[in-house]
Simulated scan of single mutants.
Amino acid sequence: MNEENKSPKRMKRRISLRRAQKESTPVVTGTSMESGTKIPEEEDIGLNILQLPEMVMVDIFSFLPVKDKCRSTRVCKTFRRLMKDSSLWKCVDLTQYSIKLRDLTKVTRLYLSKSLKHLELKGFLCTTVKTKLLSEVFLEELRARSPNLSKLVIHNAELRTLPSSKLPKSLQHLHLQSCQLREGWLLPALEEGTLKNLRSLDLSGCGRITNRDISPMSQLKNLEELSLLGCYRLGDQALEAITADHPNLKSLLIGHSDFTDVGMKDVALNMKRLERFSIQHCELVTSKSLKFIQRMKTIEELDISYNPQFDDASIYGLVKGLPNLRKITVHDVTTVSDTIMQINPNIEVL
């Protein structure tokens, strides 16, 4: 290259000419619908997500499932730092993953903190995997790291060897759905006052629950919601204990058990604040029980499905006698829905 080409003036001139030529050339990105001529537009400038305010980025991350949140920490240091924001870990749902105890412990140590309010887990009862979901050590660590945990939901887990006394003391809602429990499993937690703040207890599908497990629940003074659907070992003795110890219940779900009209009468006479009531698949209960339920004027939602022994006339009388009823689930919708709608068009019939 000669000296002339190396001169600074000539170099600056070439750069300015190239810049002017680039600015004068339009970027074509579309076509006019009317004339078919090309429409010049300004050059598109890409926006990097890292240029967004951190509050906006955290809001975007909140829509990610837990697994994607964990993976996002590998993208860059900024993602890793923002993913530890406490607002992203208030409600953690792990039911869509087959997560083992070791991985669950790792997630707990990395991300769960005082901000955690709601934790939902799924075990391995319905799979061929033979492993534990929880351990005593994990529950102790969860209690220490998340002292504000108010709701714990566990599905399909083997919990017979797990001490209930190690459950977090901050729990207000405990849902153990279709879990394997031994008889008297809740007793240590009740005796030690671990569950004294409990407001709702769901033991649906826990087939080992018996009448003897119900009486110790009298210590749950703040209990408002109780679900015992699928606890087939229960009978009228359990209902007698529930109505005596928890007359202020707002929701009671029972079914698939040997309850009779005697138990239904106890419920109707003692539970004056009940708003939601279910008696699914109770073959020993007759239409006479519907007359007892008719006295419960506070009922808003009622489920009497899978009880073909209830005649239509008794159901109509029941609906007429419940002024606050908003929703009712029956065995055969086709035969009674039209008549119920005539009685009260605001009732939802399922």
Rank of each mutant, 00 (worst) to 15 (best):
I154F: 01
V129S: 14
A313L: 02
T339Y: 03
D213N: 13
L116A: 00
D311V: 12
C126N: 15
L176E: 04
K132N: 08
E140S: 05
C231M: 00
H175T: 13
T243V: 04
L110Y: 00
Q237W: 03
R276V: 14
M11H: 12
P26H: 03
L121K: 08
H256G: 03
L252E: 08
I347Q: 08
S215L: 15
Q237C: 01
T95C: 10
S7D: 15
V153P: 01
V349D: 08
S287G: 15
T29R: 14
E23C: 09
L171T: 07
V58T: 13
N270Q: 12
G263K: 11
L110D: 11
G193S: 06
D312S: 12
L325T: 03
I15Y: 04
Q294A: 13
L116W: 00
V56G: 06
V333C: 09
E34L: 13
I154W: 04
L229G: 02
H246I: 02
I154Q: 00
C206N: 10
T210S: 15
I340Q: 06
K327Q: 07
S86Q: 09
K250V: 10
M55K: 12
L187G: 07
K114A: 08
L350P: 14
L350E: 14
V56I: 12
N156D: 09
S314K: 04
N222P: 00
L252Q: 04
K69H: 01
T78I: 12
S7N: 13
M296A: 02
L142T: 00
F79E: 11
E140A: 04
L159E: 01
K38Q: 14
M296H: 02
S7V: 13
Q294E: 07
V333W: 00
I304V: 10
L17Y: 04
Q21L: 06
K22N: 09
C231I: 07
S16Y: 06
L325K: 04
D103V: 04
T243N: 00
F124H: 10
A157V: 03
V349C: 04
S86N: 11
R102T: 02
R273G: 10
I49Q: 09
I279D: 01
L52S: 05
M33I: 14
